[in-house]
Design a protein around this nucleic acid. Structure first.
Lengths: 269, 269
DNA sequence: AAACAACGGTTCGTTATATGAACCACCAAC
DNA sequence: GTTGGTGGTTCATATAACGAACCGTTGTTT
């Protein structure tokens, strides 16, 4: 593994829930040598990617990332293009909505929007999304580049009893997503959550990411599913438009079938 | 130079004005070998820091920087703490306002806010700020850690005829900043701009950054200076409060003198 | 259409650079 | 004063970074 990659990987250990990390602690987390880790941290600090809390000596993300994010968003305004649709989605469903972006073979969390309706709700710690266990991931496998499925099949980490851990289980979920235009993760990532997701496309015509709703499994009803489904499709259309893409015809067709079926099961809301 | 540092440095060549860069182009800019640069780009791409435009093969910043920025801002909400004061500052002065953050020995642009009042106005390409040639930089030298001045004196790059290029010239500007509580860059960075800046402090009690106004030199009048001065101080106080700091007494005293002197020169606005 | 130049990407022998066990100095708890 | 935890440093070793030269493609020029 290249030294640059190792240094960059250190950044991925910072998160909202763990925003400051000490040297020794980071060595444990990353399972790396202290001297090496220290040198990497120095490189990162020099470049402004991290800085040291003067009081605690712990490291935290630095100001350089703010600049880069601003340049990125000015170049490819993904977040801006998703914001409105996400808040509307969270508002209409009363659940937590979020969007993801595919880059290379990794699905990254873009932003999250919680609804205040329920005290118990899913919170998304924005991170990379496992392709096989999340609704957004299944969307990526179903509608993204084909080689993604091979990559995902290599690492079928088990998160819950429902996580698909063999290729057959995974492909059946992906096929279902293709057929319905919707990715579904029923307790496959976290024990209590039910995720539904719809694909989003960009100006290259390719799959660019997904928009998703994470709901608490215990309050999931056919009625709620019907609402989420309808709103998800609206959001996916809006974000796709903002990202300069168009929904492929076969996806629109799959959605139409899904909605029809959903309405049939729970008629006249 | 470490490989990690070299890879990270590549990211700094992306900017709002040059958001996408091809391999060969980047090699020229960074004055690096093509094979090496390519490998570095691959590392960066793997980590999600850059991605390739599928059509043009050019590289641009990737989604990972968005996540990191979100974590950084959740950890240390610098931007949020500066936003309101900056818009108010731009609004009150009719000029472009911006804020900078010191991390290590580098002064980073945080955010910029333009006023629509004039068609001709300064635009800040958020980047690292040269300590010797910008108003914010002079603030950092005047109120930041002492070793900063030694570092800055090592690299006195000339930008204009007014750029201080010897230690004496620089120290006199820094001394002036200390005496007035205000950093001044009169055509020392760009030929047409006049920058005024005030220091901002954080909860450690240290200098944390600066807030600044970049004005067009040709429309600069004592009257405008008086306005900028007053508003700058208000903004610096507000941002300092939001960042959890307090303005040191000697800085407040210097400001009081500056305002008094400025009022005396242009009485009864 | 042939020649050219510029592009992104790859190869391979050389050599510089990353590595990590062992090492400080420091601090807090007991 | 011992113990266990920090953040930070050293130096011989070995690994991975390096770059000249290479390939295949593309789009422009003659």
């Amino acid at each position: 593994m290249s030294s640059a990659k190792k240094a960059l990987e250190l950044l991925s250990y910072f998160s909202i829930s763990r925003p400051e990390i000490g040297l020794s602690q980071l060595c444990r987390i990353a399972k790396r040598d202290k001297a090496t880790t220290y040198r990497h941290l120095q490189s990162l600090e020099n470049a402004g990617f991290i800085e040291q809390n003067a009081l605690t000596k712990q490291y935290r993300l630095g100001p350089a990332v703010m600049q880069l994010a601003q340049i990125r968003e000015a170049t490819v305004p993904r977040k801006e293009g998703a914001r409105h649709a996400l808040t509307a989605l969270a508002d209409a469903t009363g659940e937590t909505a979020h969007a993801t972006v595919l880059s290379g073979q990794t699905l990254y969390g873009l932003c999250e929007c919680e609804s205040p309706r329920h005290a118990i709700r899913a919170v998304i710690d924005l991170n990379t999304f496992p392709l096989h266990a999340t609704a957004s991931g299944l969307c990526a496998l179903a509608f993204g580049p084909e080689d993604l499925l091979c990559v995902a099949a290599q690492d079928l980490e088990r998160f819950t009893a429902n996580t698909p851990t063999d290729t057959d289980g995974l492909t059946s979920l992906v096929d279902a997503a293709r057929a319905t235009g919707i990715g579904r993760a029923y307790k496959s990532y976290a024990e209590e959550t039910y995720g539904l997701s719809a694909p989003v496309f960009d100006q290259t015509g390719q799959f660019a990411g997904a928009v998703a709703v994470a709901s608490v499994a215990t309050r999931f009803t056919p009625k709620l599913e019907q609402t989420i489904l309808a709103e998800l499709i609206i959001a996916a259309r809006e974000i796709t438009r903002n990202w300069g893409g168009v929904i492929p015809a076969h996806v629109e067709a799959a959605w139409a079938l899904s909605v029809k079926k959903s309405n049939a099961m729970e008629p006249a809301s």
